[in-house]
Amino acid sequence: MLDWINQGIVTWGYVGIVLLMLLENIFPPIPSEVIMPLAGFTIAQGELNFFGVILSGVMGSILGALPWYYLGKNWGEKKLRRWIELRGQWIAISTDDLERSQQWFRRYGNLVVFLGRVIPGIRTYISIPAGLQNMPLLPFLIYSTFGTIVWISLLTFVGYWLGDNYTLVKQFTTPISVIVFVILAVGITIWFYKRKKR
């Protein structure tokens, strides 16, 4: 996969970065933790410039987030509410829980989207609840873009700084992704347990 990513950036330049980051958001197994540090390395080689790489990475990432946003938006609250009414007891979720989550997302949704775009492991999927909760498109794009700029800039700078060793970025971000998933899984498990017990 590394050779394929490298070839895409070398051959297509900024357009290649846009396409790779778009695919990374639609098919998460393609890691941004490799794409952007490699792009940062090309900056160090004098082949691309920093601003162009950041802009390309952000554009591709935001374009890739839109299908997930519209998936949540088109599935919609009515279908979700109907599903919860029929099968919600299987996972201890009620329509009252749905209402509370909507109130919570309306209150903190902007921050959730911003931070979600910076956290490995959930940055791709944060677009689904945003669409599901009918977050307006403009705020979604604004906060997604700000969060994405932080993530893309960090990966690009680290790749530039590491030079030939840019692949080390993946080694550091993979444990972070695992930790995030474990924390989420434990939190959800505790919540389900408390709901069942109650």
Rank of each mutant, 00 (worst) to 15 (best):
L48M: 11
G52W: 02
V53C: 03
V53F: 01
S56L: 09
G60P: 05
S61I: 04
I62W: 01
G64I: 09
A65F: 10
W68S: 13
Y69F: 15
Y69R: 07
G72C: 02
G72L: 06
K73I: 00
K73G: 04
N74D: 02
G76F: 01
E77N: 12
E77S: 07
K78W: 10
R81K: 08
R81M: 06
R82S: 09
R82C: 07
W83H: 05
I84Y: 08
E85P: 03
R87F: 12
R87W: 13
G88C: 00
Q89V: 10
Q89A: 15
Q89I: 09
Q89Y: 12
I91E: 07
I91K: 12
I91V: 14
A92W: 13
A92H: 15
T95K: 13
D96P: 09
D97A: 07
L98Q: 07
E99F: 12
S101I: 12
Q102R: 14
Q102Y: 13
Q102F: 14
Q103I: 11
Q103K: 15
F105V: 08
R106W: 09
R107D: 14
Y108L: 14
Y108W: 15
Y108Q: 11
N110A: 14
L111P: 05
L111R: 05
V112G: 08
V113T: 11
V113L: 02
F114L: 13
L115F: 15
G116D: 06
R117H: 06
V118P: 00
V118R: 00
I119T: 12
G121A: 05
I122N: 03
T124M: 05
Y125T: 02
I126V: 14
S127W: 05
A130L: 00
Q133N: 14
Q133W: 15
N134T: 09
N134G: 11
P136K: 12
L137T: 06
F140A: 11
L141W: 08
I142F: 12
Y143N: 08
S144Y: 09
S144N: 12
T145W: 08
F146T: 13
T148F: 00
I149T: 00
V150P: 04
W151G: 03
I152Q: 00
S153Q: 01
L154C: 05
L154Q: 01
L155C: 07
L155Q: 04
T156K: 01
F157L: 04
V158C: 01
G159M: 02
Y160P: 01
W161D: 03
W161E: 10
W161L: 13
Y166S: 01
